[in-house]
C-alpha cells in the first residue's frame, strides 16, 4: 500500500525514539517490517534515503560505530527537533477517511447476472481464501512481534484490530454465501412447482 512519504518518516522517528541507546538500519528494518508490514513495503534503498533525509533535516543524528571484524555501521538517535516533529504529528487530526468496503467481490456481486450457484460459490471461496491468507499474515506478524520489545500492548491492539476487521469480512462472506444460495434454492423450488402445476393442469384437461 502506498502511504505518503511523510508518514513513513514519522514511523521511523517513532521507532528510533523508542531506542534511547540508538538503533542501526538493519534492526530498524526488522522492527519496521514486524510492526508496519501492512502499511508499507520497505526496501533498504528507501529506508536509507529516508534516514538520510531525517539526518539532513536535523531530526535524527547518525554516528558511525566501529565494529571489529565486521563493517562499521551507523547508529541513529532522535534529536530534540525530531521529538518535537513526532509529537506535532501525533497530535494532528487524522487525515485517513474511513475506508469503504471496496473489495472487488462487492463490485462483482452488484453486477452478477444470471446467478449461477457454482459461480457464486467459486467467487466466495476465492475471496475466503484471500481473507484467510490475510489472517495468516497477521498470525505470522504476531509471532515475529513476540521477539521484538516494542510497546507490546499497543502493537497487540493494532494486530487485534486487523484480525477483527478480517473476521468481520469473513462473517459477511458467510452471510453472502448463505443468503444468495438460499435465494437461488428457493427460486429453483418455485420454478419446479410451477412446472409441476402446469403439467398437472394439462393432464387434467
Amino acid at each position: 500500500m502506498k502511504i505518503p512519504a511523510g508518514n513513513l518518516n514519522f514511523a521511523l522517528l517513532g521507532l528510533v525514539a523508542a531506542r534511547s541507546s540508538g538503533v542501526h538500519g538493519y534492526q530498524l528494518k526488522t522492527e519496521f517490517e514486524a510492526l508496519c508490514e501492512d502499511f508499507w513495503q520497505l526496501n533498504y534503498g528507501r529506508l536509507y534515503r529516508a534516514l538520510d533525509n531525517l539526518e539532513t533535516s536535523g531530526e535524527l543524528v547518525g554516528e558511525q560505530q566501529v565494529q571489529i571484524g565486521r563493517p562499521n555501521r551507523k547508529v541513529y538517535r532522535i534529536t530534540s527537533k525530531g521529538e518535537q516533529s513526532l509529537d506535532d504529528w501525533l497530535l494532528q487530526p487524522l487525515s485517513d477517511e474511513p475506508r469503504p468496503l471496496r473489495d472487488e467481490l462487492s463490485l462483482r456481486l452488484l453486477f452478477l447476472r444470471h446467478r449461477d450457484p457454482l459461480k457464486v460459490q467459486r467467487l466466495v471461496r476465492e475471496q475466503r481464501a484471500i481473507y484467510m491468507s490475510r489472517l495468516a499474515r497477521v498470525a505470522r506478524r504476531r509471532r515475529k512481534l513476540d521477539g521484538i520489545d516494542f510497546e507490546a500492548t499497543v502493537t497487540r491492539l493494532v494486530m487485534d484490530g486487523l484480525e477483527m476487521r478480517v473476521k468481520a469480512d469473513l462473517s459477511w462472506l458467510d452471510h453472502v454465501e448463505h443468503t444468495l444460495l438460499e435465494e437461488m434454492a428457493a427460486a429453483t423450488a418455485t420454478t419446479a412447482t410451477t412446472i409441476r402445476d402446469q403439467s398437472t393442469r394439462r393432464t387434467n384437461q
Binding site: 475466503r128 481473507y131 484467510m132 498470525a139 484480525e163 473476521k167
Partner: peptide, 21 residues
C-alpha cells in the same frame, strides 16, 4: 475460529459432509 485456523499450514473447510475448500 478463523484466527486460530490462520495459524495452520492449511485449512480445510467442510460443508454438508464434503470438502468444499
Amino acid at each position: 475460529d478463523p484466527v486460530w485456523a490462520a495459524n495452520c499450514d492449511r485449512v480445510v473447510r467442510l460443508v454438508d459432509g464434503l470438502v468444499s475448500e
